[in-house]
Design a protein around this nucleic acid. Structure first.
Lengths: 214, 214, 214, 214
DNA sequence: AATGAATGAGCCTTCATTCAT
DNA sequence: AATGAATGAAGGCTCATTCAT
């Protein structure tokens, strides 16, 4: 539709600078994220976002039709971030080290904002079906990728073969969210909680200790 | 502080009808919960709550000084609900069955609202330190109780002895929140996710199958 | 519904002062009229009205749910004003003098605002069916009353008997609106236009000159 | 002034493509009319007009300095449309048939939009003196033309000679506006109202039935 | 000449809260 | 204790308009 519009009008007038547009869009999204992390979706006003993003209020509405659209766009973007964790696991020499690396990455201090936002998103998916859908799609993608890694580990004999990789992946994702969601309230230090989770995964997945040879 | 206020305005020391007051308070809290479950904290207005609770707006302010106070009060109340789950585990004949019962209770359809609210609370605790504190205290209480149950299971030889019960309890709580938080977005059916979690706990806790003999 | 609400709650708390409410409502309507006369419906903002009525913006919304409701309420009120003209005709000793009196009343300087508003209302009825309905009802009422007067005049032999009184009444109403709508643009002085209209009505209705005897 | 502006920015004296400019201007005016008919002047936004006219918002401002100017321009254009009615009267074989033809033309279904706009214009002329002036001029022109026709009718003996043609013309115009303004609210069918008006004009103007002989 | 991009001011409405009864 | 009445501030969004291209 957007392309049609361009090709229709035989291109009179000022041409659209798509790069600049994308940059602006990102600028707004970044401001929005900053606000949403601090205050959540519904306590962040468009005015606040406009200030944080250093953009006029009206300008935001040239990039996002409504505040809800802005939220959805951010949720969509957020989904992509999760892929990094998968890569960490993937790139490790074995599954066990991969999970360990993932754990310490997720627990890293800079993740606090990320998790704050993630929680906001999960809470929102309980009421906003559009958001739920986006999250669903994103999570499915992540789970699929992780499942592939798990399957490989199974093939290499690093992991029990009687477990369904996709289901394990989903479980892993839930486990991460669960632990991180307790960040500000847990009495146990969060990294020890993560360690405990790793222990559980060890036995659950039947992970083998990487021997000297491998 | 609240007592001071009362004694200022009334005959000093005169006992108010505390029962009626408590009932009203509860009525308001119930209305608030209904709203918060549907819309979250910040998208629920006092007017909406007053309607849901069938109480005038102004009346709410005679029981809660600000909206934030109302939120905190609700969070406090919510903490107590979690104790039911512990009781389920406690009352089972063995830990394994207890966990199973807890799982199927948490996954029960009527829990959806509860989890919606729980997520809202967790998200809020990222920003509101007062809320965080209340949750912390509540979770600690729950964890302590669960730890006691676990310790008993250890004593009965149903569970590995080299695990720290309190840490296990915290981990269990996080695990529950993690799985339930995926309720509206999980591609895997939530009960299968729970089943997977039980499997993990089985191996992790070293739970023994309750044979006829043992 | 409003009555139900009152009778339901066994009247706790502050009782509703209906008189004060009606006064406030009128105060708002008066402010609204002043604005609408000056700027029309859609160029008058609620803020302007609140200022003109010396009332806070939010307070207006305790008396009218939306701006459109306020408009409709004003249109409804306006319908009642037209009845005065009918009374003038009715109270005259004969139809001819009555019409003359009506004409000079309508042309009176203080009518300018009234007609300005009337035009706004007519314009609005082209788009807003609710407004159209209210106007229809109001105009019908006026026409019915005027028709009765005309019928009496027919009975007294002051007016042609072969004319349908109701249709004449509607025609008269249209005629008035037509002439008054030209108030700010007519090159002919408005009272001479009115005189011309009276002449036309004279011949059309077959009005008899009031003889010395009657 | 407009010419000055052009000559500033372009080669002095260079003739712009006036035809194209006029076409664009008309395109905008047509879009504006469509909007104004639907929503009125003040509820129609430049954005809406630009969409309706299939023109960019900014482009509108190269043809009309402000929205008010656009309104005035449209009012000016609208004045010309009324001339068609005069022609109908003029071209009829006698005044009576001419008026009948005019009536049925005005009542025609496609006139609804026209009257909607006319009302908007009349309402606006109560507040905007510039608009009032334009309407005045336009109406005067129409009245003058109609007066000429009436004078001819008087000369032909079809109409009373003691009536001032110009005043009759103004009266006729008001009558038309009055009846049409009741289009959406009249309980009487509008064509019967028009018939009644014709009857009145018959007696008022002393129109003779066109017999075979005369 | 025409379009894209941008904005301050303003729109209607609702907010959390207070005061009077 | 409980309700009705009131309000300043803020909410999301759109406005008419300007500037850059």
């Amino acid at each position: 539709m957007m392309i049609d519009k361009l090709s229709n009008k035989t291109h009179l007038g000022r041409p659209r600078d798509e790069a600049a547009r994308a940059a602006r869009r990102q600028q707004i999204l970044d401001g929005a994220r900053a606000c949403f992390v601090q205050k959540g979706f519904h306590a962040s006003s468009i005015a606040m976002i406009s200030e944080e993003a250093d953009v006029s209020v009206a300008n935001i509405y040239q990039y996002f039709e409504t505040k809800d659209d802005l939220i959805v766009a951010l949720v969509e973007e957020e989904a992509k971030n999760d892929l990094n964790v998968i890569r960490l696991i993937e790139e490790a020499s074995n599954l066990r080290d991969g999970l360990k690396a993932a754990a310490s990455h997720l627990v890293g201090a800079d993740m606090q904002g990320g998790m704050q936002l993630r929680l906001e998103v999960l809470a929102e998916s309980f009421r906003n079906p559009v958001v739920a859908d986006v999250v669903k799609r994103g999570d499915k993608h992540v789970a699929t990728l992780l499942a592939k890694v798990l399957r490989a580990a199974q093939a290499r004999g690093e992991m029990r073969r009687d477990l369904d990789p996709l289901r394990c992946a989903s479980f892993f994702s839930a486990l991460c969210d669960g632990i991180l969601s307790h960040l500000p309230t847990s009495t146990e230090p969060i990294d020890e909680l993560a360690a405990e989770a790793l222990k559980a995964l060890d036995t659950y997945l039947g992970l083998v200790r990487p021997t000297k040879r491998s």
